[in-house]
């Protein structure tokens, strides 16, 4: 659905996007992760035909964004990170205006608007003025606006920013529904746990460069090469810590009130052997577990590596 090759965007001497290359398959929910100023919004703006790239190529649905912007606009629904609404417009009028702007007939608009309002749980606000809605409601309305022309690709730039926890959950549920509808979605967010549940793939971008891309589970698996083990013993933890520090594959170890923490670089077999040696030395093991890595850990680990390199 999206093919990006050597995409670069420069503003004078500042490079916002640096030789970005990636593909996103149709029907994928792709999480675009990165700190502020990493180049996520710039990439999304280029895909939405709002910015011209300095060099490289970006295709949406096979259409080059610089050559066929009209065809690209037909395929996409774009939700910017910051957006405004028109004063004195009612919710239905707001959607009707954008429907008409996408070339939908009056009859088509009349049919789709109630469906969209139902999808985003705003049916009871149909006759309310848009500027009287809460921020969360406006975000949902904007999402409904993205869908008015039934696009194949949704480009959502921080769709849940500024929302309270309840509004975030509501937004997440809507996005899950859209995923079930088979839409291709590219979504950026700072709130990594909220992406973890719904994305198929993530791309980590920093300083305009894509530093990791793949299925969340694959990236997490890759991180297991440097997993953190958490060990609790019934007694003699200080003694065990000294012993573990001498073990192969252990790069770092420390003890706190929760027990022993080990940074372990071995395989699953090495991990099992380590447990065997602990028991063999007479330590009474209460628990021996691997710390769970979430998307936030993945992001921190990858970006730490990128910064060091």
């Amino acid at each position: 659905m999206i093919e990006i090759k050597d995409l670069t965007k420069r503003y004078g001497s500042f490079t916002a996007v640096d030789s970005l290359t990636m593909d996103i398959a149709k029907g994928t929910v792709f999480g675009f992760v990165g700190p502020n100023g990493a180049g996520k919004s710039t990439t999304m703006s280029i895909l939405a035909t709002l910015l011209a790239p300095t060099s490289g190529s970006a295709k949406v649905g096979g259409f080059e964004v610089t050559e066929h912007p009209g065809d690209v606009r037909r395929l996409i629904g774009y939700m910017p990170d910051f957006f405004g609404v028109y004063d004195n417009f009612k919710t239905t009028e707001y959607l009707d205006f954008y429907g008409a702007s996408y070339g939908l007939s009056r009859a088509e608009r009349k049919k789709i608007i109630p469906q969209l309002l139902e999808l985003v749980n705003l049916s009871d606000k149909a006759e309310f003025y848009v500027d009287s809605l809460s921020r969360g409601m406006k975000q949902r309305l904007c999402l409904a606006r993205c869908l008015v022309h039934e696009p194949e690709l949704l480009i959502l730039d921080e769709p849940a920013s500024g929302m309270d926890p309840r509004a975030r959950i509501e937004m997440r549920e809507i996005l899950k529904e859209l995923k079930l509808m088979g839409k291709t979605i590219i979504i950026s967010s700072h709130i990594l746990p909220e992406l973890a549940e719904m994305v198929d793939e993530i791309g980590v971008i920093e300083q305009g460069r894509l530093i990791a891309k793949g299925r969340v589970s694959d990236i997490q698996q890759g991180m297991r090469a440097n997993r953190v083990l958490h060990i609790r013993l019934l007694e003699r933890e200080d003694e065990a810590l000294a012993m573990l520090a001498e073990e192969p594959y252990v790069s770092m170890s420390y003890l706190d009130e929760q027990g022993i923490h080990l940074h372990f670089g071995g395989t699953d077999a090495d991990q099992a052997a380590l447990l065997g040696r602990l028991i063999g030395h007479g330590y009474r093991v209460v628990s021996y577990s691997e710390a769970q890595t979430n998307l936030e850990d993945v992001f921190m680990e990858i970006t730490k590596g990128a910064k060091l390199s």
Binding site: A48, T49, R73, F83, Y86, Y98, S101, C142, R145
Partner: peptide, 9 residues
């Protein structure tokens, strides 16, 4: 509101 308008047809 301009960016949104510019992504319409």
């Amino acid at each position: 509101t301009l960016n949104i308008l510019l992504t319409t047809r």
